[in-house]
């Protein structure tokens, strides 16, 4: 469903090409985690896949159609994004934020039909944001805010859901809940869910497939088990102080800590 064909991502300035020669595919229902250290190109790759940034070379195809050449309105019906960037929203209530997800589907006035309301109710129920629907978006906590933005993305009923480091501000139980929620979304709605994360443990437990960026322009793809056994994860993340242990599925401190 999602195909990346000889894709090169990056910037047409001094930062230049970040990743190139990417040929990957994802099928409906895939829950994919993109892992890599800071600066390895996760966000650039995700923004390009979501059509928010043009590719330097190659194409991103969603259901056989080029994401870059889609009409913005069409793309908005098929791809939803959640980002870490925080914006201030004067006077927006949580319910307004979620309802904005339906804009690609509404008439010029933006009025909601029964279908739109059903999609919103569905997303609200799935993400558990019901208790703070009437509160101002600026007044909810970091964790709640991320939940709201996920509810908004779910309400957009996309084919592809792109989420960039959304769990960064959350505590461990919330992170687990949200990852599990996104995985079940992928399975139930037959969507492709693409999530970048620093959360190695959880990603390796829940992902169907991991796209691993090594930070030097290279990447490897496979199931979590295959990647940890082949040592790819170790190569991407190991430093002098820590080492990934394939047998344990987690990092170990190599030097003795006083």
């Amino acid at each position: 469903m999602l195909d990346l064909r000889s894709l090169a991502v990056g910037y047409r300035n001094t930062r230049g090409t970040v990743l190139s020669g990417i040929d990957l595919a994802a099928a409906p229902g895939d829950f994919i985690c993109i892992l890599g250290r800071n600066g390895s190109g996760k966000s650039t790759l995700m923004r390009t896949i979501a059509g928010l940034q043009t590719s330097l070379d190659g194409v991103v195809l969603l259901d056989g159609e080029g994401v870059a050449s889609m009409r913005p309105a069409t793309r908005a019906r098929r791809i939803a994004v959640v980002l870490t960037e925080r914006q201030f929203n004067p006077g927006l209530r949580v319910e307004d934020v979620i309802a904005l997800a339906r804009q690609p589907f509404t008439s010029w006035r933006g009025g909601l039909t029964d279908d739109d309301r059903a999609a919103i109710a569905d997303a609200v129920a799935a993400t558990g944001v019901e208790p703070f629907l009437r509160r101002f978006f600026t007044d909810v906590s970091d964790g709640e805010r991320q939940r709201v933005m996920i509810a908004r993305a779910v309400a957009q009923t996309p084919r592809l859901l792109v989420l960039d480091e959304i769990t960064a501000f959350l505590d461990l139980p919330s992170r687990m809940e949200i990852m599990a929620l996104l995985r079940s979304q992928a399975k139930q709605k037959r969507q492709v869910v693409l999530l970048s994360s620093h959360d190695l443990d959880l990603s390796l437990q829940l992902a169907d497939s991991v796209w691993l960026l090594d930070g030097a322009g290279g990447f490897s793809v496979g199931t979590p088990e295959a990647l940890s056994e082949s040592g790819s994860i170790g190569r991407a993340f190991d430093t002098e102080a820590i080492r990934f242990s394939p047998s344990q599925g987690r990092f170990e401190i190599t030097t003795s800590v006083p």
Binding site: A50, L52, R71, P72, A73, T74, R75, A76, R77, I79, A80, V81, L83, E85, Q87, N89, P90, L92, V97, L100, A101, Q103, P104, T106, W108, R109, G110, Q156
Partner: peptide
């Protein structure tokens, strides 16, 4: 009035507005 709908999306910030199909 004609710009009201996309302008509402812009309340979420530029990137989100673009992801909602706003030019």
């Amino acid at each position: 009035v004609a710009t009201a709908k996309p302008l509402s999306s812009l309340l979420l910030g530029e990137t989100y507005a673009r992801s909602l199909g706003v030019k």
